[in-house]
């Protein structure tokens, strides 16, 4: 089940999230968009860290992973990313 969500950060950037779920577990998460993140690799590590998580823990995990130093995201907050992921998760769960 795949969910996609475009999430416009108020006054900020466009997050384009894609989430693949299987039996309530995140198989793959992609957080794309026109934001900046430093270092770039740390963002990709946070993104990869979502795989294998149960969807119930996704929001809290996203807040922790994308808010963890040294990663800094400009143009979207960890809360924006978590919201976009949750919206994509709802799309995925509706995709039966």
């Amino acid at each position: 089940m795949t969910g996609r969500k475009d999430y416009k950060v108020p006054g900020g950037k466009l997050l384009r999230v894609e989430l693949e779920l299987e039996r309530g577990i995140v198989i793959r998460a992609a957080v794309r968009g026109d934001f900046f993140a430093h270092p770039e690799e740390a963002f990709e590590e946070a993104e990869g860290g979502l795989s294998g998580l149960p969807v119930e823990g996704l929001e809290a995990a996203a807040l922790a992973l994308f808010g963890k130093a040294p990663l800094r995201v400009f143009g979207a907050s960890p809360a924006d990313i978590a919201s976009a992921l949750m919206a994509a998760a709802h799309e995925a769960q509706a995709d039966r």
């Binding site: 384009r16 992609a30 957080v31 794309r32 968009g33 026109d34 934001f35 900046f36 993140a37 770039e40």
Partner: peptide
Amino acid sequence: VGYFQSLEA
């Protein structure tokens, strides 16, 4: 396109 964007999208 930016580093975090999908070229195809």
